[in-house]
Amino acid sequence: MQEPQDRRVVLDLDAQAERIDRALARALPDVSRSRLQDLIRTGQVSKDGIVVLDLSLKVGAGAVLDVTIPAPVDATPVAETLDLVIVHEDDDLIVIDKPAGLVVHPAPGHDAGTLVNGLIAHCGESLSGIGGVRRPGIVHRLDKDTSGLLVVAKNDLAHKGLTAQFADHGRNGPLERAYLALTWGAPEPRLGTIDVELGRSQRNREKIAIMRPGEGRTAITHYVVEEILDAGTEVALVRCRLETGRTHQIRVHLSHRGHPLLGDAVYGNAFKTKAARLGASARASLEALGRQALHAAILGFEHPRTGEVLRFESPIPPDMAALISALRANDRS
């Protein structure tokens, strides 16, 4: 097995200040600029001993840049037998009820044990060549710690048909995606739409941020507050329907409105102290949840071959159900 490469670049004393990715591309011509940008985003580059995540950081004369280039890995995911919860399967597609904690497709740090690895073992050669080597059959995804329904294409016809539906966001067809979320506080009004553009944060490339109009991607979430579960802290059960499907969309939209998801360490960390106001049982259930309280409960679409409208529902998983029950009980002992 090959070992990672450590490369050091010391900029000339007369070097002009420029973006770090450009400086590295100039100094390391054997590594593509896009590859260097990926390395920066994943924390593999440091300046003067401090990790850099910002592609636009300016560096100049005398800067010492260290780059770790991970050892190459097999580009083709290997088959792994996983205990998949299959809701529906036919010759063209498969619908999975994904548990929280399962990564959808291989990525840096997650080259094995993903849903794709399990699908390759389950579906065999039918997935090859559809949607790219690392994401065969994948037409949409769920965050690692979000549970619920996901459809995967098993052949090119299905992949093209499903991709078109997701790209259209259900405007001209029956595509339906609904999620259940637990939020700190209840959004006002109790039924409404959040229409705010999203884009990659310039401060932290691992996060999605609210963008000014015209500077991000359109993102629209329709929501309704279904129940207030704990009057003391006003935890709400909120149903969200996606009109678009951007990365972290529900989590960022609700946090932007001041109502982040329970358990969301990325977009709701400022609300972490609110847990102390919950009852003992609810506090224990939230700690046991260990993730954002978000579940993809409904998925509907048109079958790409038959034209039949398929609609699936997933029950709230046990970890979220336990938290909801504890919040309803309102035990403050």
Rank of each mutant, 00 (worst) to 15 (best):
residue 23 A to S: 06
residue 148 G to S: 08
residue 40 I to S: 10
residue 93 L to E: 12
residue 139 V to T: 06
residue 72 P to Q: 13
residue 210 I to F: 02
residue 41 R to E: 09
residue 319 D to Y: 11
residue 314 S to Q: 09
residue 298 I to D: 01
residue 28 L to A: 00
residue 30 D to C: 13
residue 178 A to W: 01
residue 243 E to A: 07
residue 55 L to M: 14
residue 330 N to L: 01
residue 308 E to I: 01
residue 1 M to F: 07
residue 53 L to C: 14
residue 95 V to W: 14
residue 36 L to K: 10
residue 124 G to R: 09
residue 268 G to Y: 05
residue 298 I to V: 15
residue 123 C to H: 12
residue 117 N to P: 14
residue 274 K to C: 11
residue 157 L to M: 08
residue 2 Q to N: 15
residue 237 L to P: 10
residue 145 D to W: 13
residue 295 H to A: 03
residue 188 E to Y: 08
residue 305 R to T: 07
residue 79 A to I: 14
residue 156 D to R: 08
residue 324 I to Y: 07
residue 230 D to V: 03
residue 243 E to M: 11
residue 218 T to Y: 09
residue 35 R to F: 04
residue 122 H to W: 09
residue 159 H to D: 04
residue 280 A to N: 07
residue 287 E to K: 11
residue 58 K to Q: 14
residue 73 V to Q: 13
residue 308 E to S: 13
residue 325 S to F: 00
residue 272 K to M: 00
residue 165 Q to S: 02
residue 203 R to L: 02
residue 57 L to A: 15
residue 242 L to S: 05
residue 104 V to R: 01
residue 139 V to S: 11
residue 67 V to Y: 08
residue 145 D to T: 09
residue 23 A to K: 10
residue 97 D to Q: 15
residue 215 E to F: 15
residue 199 G to I: 11
residue 226 E to F: 04
residue 287 E to M: 05
residue 197 E to Y: 08
residue 107 A to P: 13
residue 8 R to P: 03
residue 278 L to A: 00
residue 13 L to V: 03
residue 248 H to P: 01
residue 177 R to H: 13
residue 169 H to G: 07
residue 103 V to C: 13
residue 180 L to H: 01
residue 147 S to E: 08
residue 51 V to I: 14
residue 288 A to I: 09
residue 184 W to R: 11
residue 126 S to A: 07
residue 67 V to M: 03
residue 178 A to D: 13
residue 126 S to Q: 07
residue 262 L to I: 04
residue 27 A to R: 02
residue 66 D to N: 14
residue 165 Q to K: 02
residue 44 Q to I: 04
residue 99 P to S: 12
residue 126 S to D: 00
residue 48 D to C: 14
residue 326 A to P: 01
residue 119 L to V: 11
residue 148 G to A: 04
residue 199 G to N: 07
residue 97 D to L: 15
residue 210 I to R: 12
residue 37 Q to H: 09
residue 210 I to G: 05
residue 315 P to W: 07
residue 68 T to D: 06
residue 328 R to W: 03
residue 300 G to R: 00
residue 241 R to V: 07
residue 131 G to L: 00
residue 160 K to L: 08
residue 245 G to H: 01
residue 216 G to I: 12
residue 173 G to Q: 07
residue 232 G to A: 14
residue 246 R to L: 12
residue 147 S to G: 10
residue 123 C to R: 00
residue 43 G to I: 03
residue 183 T to N: 05
residue 54 D to W: 12
residue 284 A to C: 13
residue 87 V to W: 14
residue 78 V to C: 08
residue 332 R to C: 12
residue 311 R to T: 02
residue 267 Y to E: 03
residue 119 L to D: 05
residue 72 P to G: 02
residue 333 S to K: 07
residue 303 H to L: 07
residue 332 R to E: 12
residue 329 A to E: 10
residue 137 G to W: 11
residue 169 H to M: 09
residue 226 E to G: 01
residue 142 L to P: 03
residue 227 E to L: 09
residue 122 H to E: 09
residue 183 T to C: 08
residue 251 R to D: 01
residue 35 R to I: 07
residue 285 S to P: 10
residue 123 C to D: 03
residue 298 I to T: 05
residue 118 G to E: 03
residue 179 Y to A: 02
residue 271 F to R: 04
residue 119 L to I: 04
residue 158 A to H: 05
residue 72 P to M: 00
residue 123 C to Q: 02
